[in-house]
Amino acid sequence: MKIRPVYFFLLLAVVGVVLVFANTPTISNYKTYDNQGIAQQNPDESYEKMMDVLTHQRCMNCHPNDNIPKQGDDRHPHYFGMARGDDDNGFEATSCNTCHQSINNTNSGVPGAPHWSLAPASMGWEGLSRAQIAERLLDKNTNGNRSHDELVKHMTEDDLVLWAWEPGIDADGNQRTIPPVSKKEFKEAVENWFANGAIIPNK
């Protein structure tokens, strides 16, 4: 019971990867999930795995509910009073990109990824329960009008999302912590949960 699903999962993962490589995914062909056979993993488990990542500080620090980005494993408010600004990218002249570029900086320890910015205020997750986060994630009014397919694509392919697993070193030269679930597992969990209808457990 405890070991079996892991093997099964690994098998599915291999199949999944093969399929992904076979069909270079585009938004249109993501619709074929339920035909890919991934859906057999327990979606509740996938949900929890996905949430382990979304609630990790690498993700949560830029999904604030108070318009103030957070930093570090202790999730302290971003130093120097940086805040969301009008376009989720800081202030007019001192924006996120005054310091953060499209790659991590190994000299300064400043993290970076393409389109480095805060998630929109509607996607503020900080302090919410997992179910509440999922609701915001799925609601087109709060998720940037994204369909399930678009969400899967965003969560499994976006460079800024995937930065969580390559967060680089901090100002002191230490590696930043990464989410407790591997990138591969996360992608599969996202795909599986959505393929099974994106049902929020216990609801």
């Binding site: 130093y79 005054t98 000299n107 300064s108």
Partner: peptide, 26 residues
């Protein structure tokens, strides 16, 4: 050298950038 003090601020295409944290290739 950590983009914290702003002493290295200059303009790249008229945008403020902290140059200690900006790879020259960009």
């Amino acid at each position: 050298g950590k983009a914290a003090c702003g002493a290295c601020t200059l303009l790249v295409d008229d945008e403020a950038v902290r140059s200690c944290s900006y790879p020259v290739k960009f």
